[in-house]
């Protein structure tokens, strides 16, 4: 699979990263080399092989429905880059679906 600069630009938008055109060109080259290497996985015969998603995880681990310790608003906001009273403040944005 060949990665083009346009693909990289689109992936960058999805990942909320911004790159200069030069950076994008270099990055595209690096990604291409790495993905080419990854592509050798396509040589493995995988008939009937299930993915290993939940291999190591335990089924049915639950928490009982009891209220525990919570942070105070001041603790919650202690690391905030910007706040307004008890609220996190962020720059202008548009509502999403």
């Amino acid at each position: 699979m060949s990665v083009r600069t346009d693909d990289t630009r689109q992936i960058a938008a999805l990942a909320r990263l911004s790159f200069s055109d030069d950076e994008l060109r270099v990055l595209t080259g690096e990604m291409k080399a790495i993905l080419d290497y990854m592509a050798h996985l396509s040589r493995v015969t995988l008939d009937g092989v299930e993915p290993a998603f939940s291999l190591l995880r335990c089924d049915n681990v639950f928490r009982e429905d009891c209220v525990g310790e919570m942070l105070t608003p001041d603790d919650a906001l202690s690391n905030a880059p910007d706040r307004h009273g008890d609220l996190f403040r962020v720059p202008a944005f548009l509502p999403k679906d």
Partner: peptide, 9 residues
């Protein structure tokens, strides 16, 4: 657009 968003979690 509005100038700021205030977020309550």
């Amino acid at each position: 657009s509005s100038a700021a968003g205030l977020v309550d979690m």
